[in-house]
Design a binder for these strands. Structure first.
Lengths: 263, 263
DNA sequence: AACATCGTTTCACAATATGGAACGAGAGGC
DNA sequence: GCCTCTCGTTCCATATTGTGAAACGATGTT
């Protein structure tokens, strides 16, 4: 890590950004005076900053009302921001926090062929949460919770190609029957998450939820896993909302939009 | 209109915005030095501005590489920007320009029940392009090009509900047969635009293309219309790319994404 | 017609942003 | 292990640059 960094900031820029953020709070159109009073800045300053933002297309001024809206340049910026968005970058801080609050292993995985591949993993030690772990580790998709989530949200043609292969049993609980798996995947799609109780390894429980990208496709999944004696079925039932919320927050930052808002 | 406005801008803010825009050009991750040399600013200035942007979450610094990426706050901003996006606001400048280059009437319409409703219209007079016109005017959807586009991209259940009604002929060319219309709508979906030659009014030709919102749904359509003697079938064939491009640009600004870029 | 209210502009002042140089921390080469 | 290169951040004297009260001009309202 480079230097320690201790917050040296530029006032005028801070104010300009504060103005931009004002548009987030519901109202999409704001007048100079409104912003001025809300942020307690002199009108002249607000006007000048808005003019600067407008020069770059970050806001536009309605020709007749004189009020301001967020501009197309911002959208352009985010188009490319989203294009360059890496799941594991976005997810990392959320994973760390989840590992912290739950005190269990948290991972992020994607599907590669028949396997789920770990992209990121946080394991809690005595006090702090370590990053490393089995990054890059491959696990048969049908036997782990992340894998089942990723399969569940696959386009049906792609799923068909994968399911005609032989599925190895890793424990007595591993699902090996294609029909059983299909039914399980259907249930997972319905409820929005997957669980696995000793299907991959004896004494190992896990729960997993999908991550969507901006097109709505499921591109990855997060999972919480731990020893069966600690991560009991009851405890898993309790943490479902937490896990789902984390997954949704990551999806949201990836540009996934749920609501239908336009007129 | 208020005062004339003559570009008084704030340097530091301009620089900060310029830094943000640097991320658009392909590379999603940039180092202080890269930005510094690309924009020809001293490293210290860039570092300070980035620190300010980071304090507001507009950029984030990768903990290990020290480089910067666009931050989640930007995405949050755009989420709300898009939510408050009004089609006619976004479309207006594009419509004006299209009317200018073609010298024909350009309008923006949405579907309301069986009718296409004008939201915005630009008609070219001798030299300049006037805004007003029949805003709010309703036209039977099956008889105009915009209407046909809007019908063509409707979910099939909704379409079925609309098509069982009687369709009035307005000229000898008006499509009144449901089967014929269905075939026409299919063709429109295929080619991405619709034309209408004297189907609504004798001597009136028109071409229309759809506008998508960020979810991909078709929420409006633009059209170019004019007298048959001037807007001939040949001329319409020529301007198809122009019209399509304008429509796509508007869709893009509404948050519609075409490409699939994520990893 | 007089009056609010709007957004923009002016202008004198000094607060604030600037940038060259120094600093501390990694990375890589020898 | 030591040296060197490059990275991002911090320092600090300087004056450039942003600031805000008040004036301005244009709209719409009473």
């Amino acid at each position: 890590m480079p230097n320690t960094k201790a917050g040296q900031t530029v006032q005028s820029v801070e104010r300009a950004l504060a103005i931009l953020k004002t548009f987030s709070n519901g109202e999409p159109e704001l007048s100079v005076s409104q912003i001025s009073s809300r942020l307690k800045m002199p009108k002249s300053t607000v006007s000048r900053l808005l003019a600067t933002l407008q020069a770059h297309g970050f806001v536009v001024q309605d020709a007749e009302t004189g009020r301001f809206r967020l501009g197309a340049e911002l959208i352009a910026l985010v188009h490319s921001a989203i294009a360059g968005l890496q799941v594991h970058h976005v997810a990392r801080p959320h994973l760390r926090q989840l590992a912290n609050t739950l005190g269990e292993t948290v991972s992020l995985s994607v599907l590669d062929g028949h396997d789920a591949v770990n992209l990121e993993q946080f394991v809690p030690t005595q006090r702090l949460v370590m990053r490393v772990g089995w990054v890059g580790r491959r696990m048969p998709a049908h036997a782990v919770s992340v894998g089942k989530v990723l399969l569940a949200f696959l386009p049906s043609e792609e799923l068909d190609q994968l399911l005609d292969q032989q599925m190895e049993p890793l424990t007595p609980n591993t699902i090996t029957n294609p029909t059983t798996l299909r039914r399980e995947l259907h249930r997972i799609r319905q409820q929005g998450y997957a669980t696995a109780f000793e299907e991959f390894e004896e004494g190992l429980h896990a729960i997993s939820a999908p991550i969507h990208d901006h097109t709505g496709r499921v591109i990855a999944a997060i999972s919480v896993s731990g020893p069966a004696y600690r991560l009991t079925r009851e405890r898993i039932a309790d943490i479902i909302p937490t896990v789902l919320e984390t997954a949704q927050r990551i999806s949201w930052e990836m540009g996934y939009m749920v609501e239908e808002t336009n007129r």
